[in-house]
Design a protein around this nucleic acid. Structure first.
Lengths: 351, 351
DNA sequence: TTGTATGCGTTATCAC
DNA sequence: GTGATAACGCATACAA
């Protein structure tokens, strides 16, 4: 029962050469269709499983480049670690990874686009892109695709372009969780809520916002107002002030933006932590402190690590074995309360 | 910059044979300690990374056996799938997996022990064990260890034996989450709770129970009673009746046992779904229906899939490259509400 | 279309 | 101790 079946076993059984058998599994190489059928059939029958390892060993390396044009280090650092981890785990298969991080502010959009352009003709098989939006990004992606380079977007999707797939958070579910959590934390007579969202140019924040608004109404929460901070901390600080001046009766908050800090600071300074239920997104050091203090009731973790990891893996498997990849890979949003906050911090550290 | 550094590169640079270089990385093979030092040093300097793949290619297969002596199919099926998935992903490294499922009831404990005995002298390198407890299990594990076979326990730990590690859920955190959820769902004037636990012979249920009780008191929940169903559905049905007859004022329930069905059925029939807050464990078809109906407020998912996967992976990495494995590998318990139930069901299906 | 020979990176075996 | 050389399982350039 311990007999490994290899292409040799099959070749022998069929009295053919090993190259024939090998070729039978590569659709692009030509051989007698009748023989191919026969080979595939007996391979199946003998329980043959290809050794991807030995296969990749004799092939040329796969090269994947990544551009992270990131806004929040706490967030994109985790994506980077996910990519690095996938790259490490797959390094035996001869994947080489080239990763470029360009922090927003330190680099302009033009820099980022220039970097993408520089990838042309360098022999890359795949490219992962994070943090670029709109028509200009779409045209860059199409240009790379034209060259035969497979492109995937990370955390944000880009419409009307030829990206292979996108690896992002499940915004529909996240919005729904946020609404349900507010529903749970708020008593029946206190249902007035406000939403602080992030960069509304991004599809992610658009769909997240709409999902939250829809589900909030299903839970009989009264949406007083939606503020789009556009990911500028200054704006967030201004808006939270405006919000509580205009609507002093606010009962609950959902802060979907990653720059929750100015808002939370305001709540703490004005002693609103106990009175206002607050739901946030993600897990990062500053936020954790507010959860421990009881100012933030719960947060929804988007698993950027997993998103990065699956982006790299998806690209690799598609390039190396032509595996079909879902057009959208969703991470599973996770609920973090005070009781499991420590577990998440540990979990993230160990990755 | 694209120069792969292999043992050949190093051998050439040092004017030695590749065998020397190869051996330098195997602690048990003897060679001039001075040369070993030199090789390791220059390897480091040249940025050499061993290709595990090519390495395993020329070595003999690693054989891992698994015994699942399981009580709840919904639970152990997932562990099985985790093991199978890990085995598939690692099959390129020449791991062969032999998996035996013996459902409780269909097989006796004696059958399970006999199976473990039959593993002796069969050339296995590692064994995964689930569902066996106590001194008899410990002695079996020690016997296997004596032979040089690495043993890990799955989902439940066994004390005072020479198992390499255990892959299980984080009971401390799970109990803490359950208590916090009841705290959130119950208003300040309704804090009377009852716990239904599972098999108290198992360490898992012992620590989980203690964790819940401790955290419940921290949240000012009043523990009316703790029922140990011992994983017998009949017992659970009897106990829930007794509970509500004795304490009609029950406000909340934590059902840590996997056989929550009879209890939930009772709640439904007696129309207690709205009045009593219910926290359960895990995600399986019957439970999902009760979450959708609103009878169960939340459940805590233990990720048996991940537990199985990590058990297999840990064993493989330890055997193949001597990697040190933590004595206890914990899965991260996850909170499931109505809003993210569908996401979990999808997530499980896709595994 | 088919077969032969070689390479991929490493370890095992058997000489020396 | 050390060094050739043959595996390991597969793909492919080249020859037929």
């Amino acid at each position: 029962m311990e007999n490994k079946v290899t292409i040799y076993t099959i070749a022998e059984a069929l009295d053919m050469s090993v190259s024939m058998v090998s070729r039978a599994f590569k659709p692009e190489s030509k051989l007698n269709p009748e023989k191919r059928r026969l080979i595939l059939e007996t391979a199946e029958k003998m329980g043959f499983v290809q050794n991807k390892m030995a296969s990749r060993l004799s092939m040329k390396p796969i090269r994947i480049a990544t551009l992270i044009y990131g806004r929040f280090p706490a967030y994109y650092d985790e994506m980077v670690r996910g990519i690095e981890s996938a790259s490490r785990d797959l390094s035996d298969y001869k994947v080489v990874s080239m990763l470029r991080v360009m922090p927003f502010g330190e680099y302009t959009e033009a820099d980022a686009f220039a970097f993408l352009d520089s990838l042309s003709g360098e022999g890359y098989d795949g490219v992962i892109i994070h943090g670029l939006y709109g028509a200009e990004a779409a045209s860059r992606i199409d240009a790379l695709s034209e060259e035969g380079i497979k492109v995937c977007t990370l955390h944000n999707d880009i419409l009307s372009c030829r990206r292979l797939f996108t690896s992002m958070s499940d915004t529909e579910v996240t919005g729904s969780i946020a609404a349900e959590l507010l529903d749970i934390f708020l008593p029946p007579d206190r249902r007035r809520v406000v939403l602080f969202s992030g960069n509304m140019k991004s599809l992610v924040h658009q769909t997240l916002t709409f999902s939250f608004i829809r589900h909030a109404s299903q839970h009989n929460l009264q949406m007083l107002r939606h503020y789009a901070t556009e990911d500028y901390p200054g704006e967030a600080a201004r808006m939270v002030r405006e919000a509580f001046e205009t609507y002093p009766e606010i009962d609950g908050l959902y802060i979907s933006s990653a720059n929750s800090e100015p808002i939370l600071k305001y709540l703490e300074e004005h002693d609103l932590g106990d009175r206002v239920a607050v739901i946030a997104s993600d897990v990062f050091p500053e936020l954790s402190a507010y959860i421990r203090k009881g100012i933030v009731n719960a947060t929804i973790y988007q698993d950027p690590y997993g998103q990065g990891r699956r982006a790299f893996e998806g690209l690799f498997y598609h390039i190396s074995e032509g595996r079909a990849i879902d057009s959208i890979i969703m991470s599973n949003p996770q609920i973090v309360l005070r009781s499991n906050l420590g577990a998440y911090e540990r979990w993230k550290r160990e990755k």
